[in-house]
């Protein structure tokens, strides 16, 4: 894989990842396109720029780690892993099939470098903090990034974890909230509002950084800022658009968890050309 800090190059990768996402979910006939599309720039900026890793050596002790706590966004992760060369790209369309590497939710039994099996919401940050605490004990430079859903942080365990992360000053773990404002049943503000979000993280002992989650340059700066801070951990609140990049999916709760039809895929790919 080729790492780059060039925003235009990262944007081109992001577009390809979006094409992969809609294509594989259409092939699977089920899955979660909206929350996969909203997190594309976050994952692309990490894996292709800020992440310390070597896809030819996933066992490297000092590599960074990524925990997709909102495991239902697996398609974005699978596409990025395949683009990096960790997993076969030609099997992406086997998503959700029996025996496929690309299980419905990320599964370490199928892809060991994932570190965690996720999908049951609320659990990824605790796991990430355990990994971060171990890296600190060992004196390893590994950083651990953990993407949380906005609806997901309604789970109490996230706030147990936030208290732990701040109290033990686990600054090598960066939670990133993919704040796309929509969860399964509708808009987050109508289901169980999570506002004031930045104030919540701040009161739990984190340094909250609000960014446009589709602005790669802003994400790069946020990751650098988080890495430089040692007095307290940082939480990146990424303001995103659910279904970003496909006009009829954008901001539409319907596409939290339903696959595009063949006609919709054609339309989506035309927009992502």
């Amino acid at each position: 894989m080729k790492k780059t800090s060039n925003v235009a190059e990262l944007e081109a990768i992001a577009k390809q990842v979006r094409r992969d996402i809609v294509t594989m979910i259409t092939a699977a006939k089920s899955g979660h396109p909206g929350g996969s599309l909203s997190a594309v720039e976050i994952l692309v900026t990490l894996y292709f720029d800020k992440f310390q890793h070597d896809p030819s050596n996933p066992d490297w002790a000092h590599r960074d780690h990524f925990i997709l706590s909102k495991g239902h966004a697996a398609p974005v992760l699978y596409s990025v892993l395949a683009e990096c060369g960790y997993t076969p790209k030609d099997q992406l369309n086997h998503l959700r099939r029996l025996g496929s590497l690309y299980q419905g939710h990320p599964d370490v039994r199928f892809i060991p470098m994932l570190d965690a099996s996720t999908g049951s919401l609320g659990q990824g940050l605790s796991f990430a903090l355990g990994m971060g605490a171990a890296a600190k004990l060992d004196g390893r430079s590994s950083r651990i990034y953990c993407v949380l859903g906005d609806g997901e942080i309604q789970e109490g365990q996230i706030w147990e974890a936030a208290m732990f992360g701040a109290f033990h000053n686990v600054t090598n773990v960066v939670p990133i909230v993919d704040y796309n404002r929509i969860q399964l049943d509708g808009f987050v503000k109508d289901i169980l509002d999570i506002e004031p979000l930045a104030a919540k993280w701040e009161s739990f002992g984190y340094y909250p950084l609000e960014v446009d989650g589709h602005d790669i340059a802003a994400l790069q700066a946020a990751f650098d800022d988080a890495a430089a801070r040692t007095d307290k951990p940082t939480c990146i609140i990424a303001h995103t658009v659910k279904g970003k990049g496909v006009s009829f999916m954008e901001d539409n709760p319907k596409y939290h968890g339903s696959a595009p039809t063949a006609e919709e895929l054609e339309k989506a790919l035309a927009e992502l050309a």
């Binding site: 990994m131 171990a134 208290m163 732990f164």
Partner: peptide, 17 residues
């Protein structure tokens, strides 16, 4: 602290590392 669910997750992350 009094947060057993998080404790199990922390332990899992420590084990994974």
């Amino acid at each position: 602290g009094i947060a057993e669910a998080n404790m199990v997750g922390i332990a899992a992350g420590l084990a994974a590392a």
